[in-house]
């Protein structure tokens, strides 16, 4: 088997495994949600003084003892093993692509996507090995399935040699850190989305005022809150405060790495083009992304912005990150347009 077909098969295999992991982890999340609701009910029964035997048993453990790690289901085992196998297979696929191409596998959009989604999954698995964040699994596997699927069907191109401008140590540094940052910020964005969903789910519906535009806005909001209230699986994710703490940690790491990416890019540009910054579209967007995440960090510590609004700023940053990689690569002209072909 050639490296090319090995890479191809391994990546399709990983895509399929992630799809299975996505379904299984969603089922597990629903089960955690049920268990959590049941535990809550029981606690309140105990608190109400019920001397029922089963309730008495559970009262022996402290009130806060619900642990998602204690919820076992077949789905959990399937999700975990398919995800790990998927990550291993994808690793093989990425490395084989690198061998086939004869250079690091992140010089075209296709390569960037297969490596970036892989990093997102690995970041998740690393965090997961320290604390149970299985509630992020449906989002991460969903993202990876979609990204890989798109890469294999739309973005795929046969490997080619590198043009002279890309043959640099700085390509390895700059782009690899960019991909790692992207992977981490992706997981952070997923945590942030869950944070906002949980947050609005816990909201009461607001009274609809009579004013025209405000009325529409409140209606729209209520409709969304109602949908979120219908999604019981959201009980399975932690409280908004906890999700925000996790998202912040991920964003902080991602932001430092992105800062490094931008700086390494400037050093590379200095070497290759004789100017460290030229407001090339790619540079503009890297800057925009950096500034938005800086705004997020400020928003977190600003009254009235902490919590929801800063979460929205972080998501805008993520949208810009994805834009930088898609629209900017494909549409805008600039020195960086190597990435398309």
């Amino acid at each position: 088997m050639t490296a090319q077909s090995l890479s191809w098969l391994a990546l399709w295999g990983a895509t399929a495994l992630y799809a299975i992991a996505m379904v299984a982890s969603s089922m597990h999340l629903a089960k955690v949600a049920d268990a959590k609701v049941a535990a809550k009910k029981q606690r309140s029964l105990v608190a109400a003084g019920s001397q029922d035997a089963t309730a008495g048993e559970s009262a022996a453990s402290p009130a806060s003892a619900f642990r998602r790690a204690d919820v076992h289901s077949k789905a959990r085992g399937i999700a975990r093993s398919t995800m790990i196998m998927g990550a291993l297979l994808q690793g093989v696929g990425v490395v084989a692509r690198g061998i086939e191409a004869g250079h690091v596998p992140w010089s075209t959009m296709y390569e960037y996507t297969i490596t970036g989604t892989w990093v997102a999954v690995v970041v998740f698995l690393v965090v997961q090995s320290r604390r149970d964040v299985s509630y992020l699994a449906p989002g991460v596997t969903g993202f990876a399935t979609l990204g890989l699927g798109l890469a294999m069907t739309v973005l795929y191109n046969a490997s080619t040699g590198l043009m002279p401008a890309l043959q640099s140590f700085w390509l390895v540094i700059h782009v690899s850190i960019a991909i790692i940052a992207t992977g981490i910020l992706t997981v952070g964005a997923i945590a942030t989305v869950l944070q906002l969903m949980r947050d609005y789910r816990d909201e009461p519906l607001s009274a609809v005022p009579t004013g025209g535009l405000r009325r529409l806005r409140v209606r729209w909001r209520n409709a969304n809150v109602r949908i979120l209230k219908g999604w019981n699986w959201l009980e399975g994710v932690p409280s908004p405060a906890r999700l925000e703490a996790l998202a912040f940690r991920l964003h902080a790491v991602g932001f430092v790495l992105w800062t490094f990416t931008v700086m390494a890019g400037a050093v590379w540009a200095e070497h290759a083009w004789g100017r460290y910054w030229g407001w090339d579209p790619k540079e503009v967007w890297s800057f925009v992304i950096w500034v938005i995440y800086a705004a997020y960090l400020h928003a977190r510590t600003t009254q009235g912005w902490a919590g929801r609004r800063s979460a929205v700023v972080a998501l805008i940053g993520f949208v810009a990150l994805i834009m930088n990689f898609t629209v900017v690569n494909l549409v805008f002209q600039g020195l960086h347009t190597y990435s398309g072909t």
């Binding site: 407001w279 579209p281 503009v284 967007w285 800057f287 925009v288 500034v291 938005i292 800086a294 705004a295 400020h298 928003a299 600003t302 009235g304 912005w305 700023v313 810009a320 900017v328 805008f332």
Partner: peptide, 18 residues
């Protein structure tokens, strides 16, 4: 707050340049 808003405006203002 001013810093935060200026940062957001800065990000927005850079986009036409691309």
């Amino acid at each position: 707050r001013v810093a935060l808003i200026l940062l957001l405006i800065l990000a927005l203002a850079a986009i036409p340049g691309s």
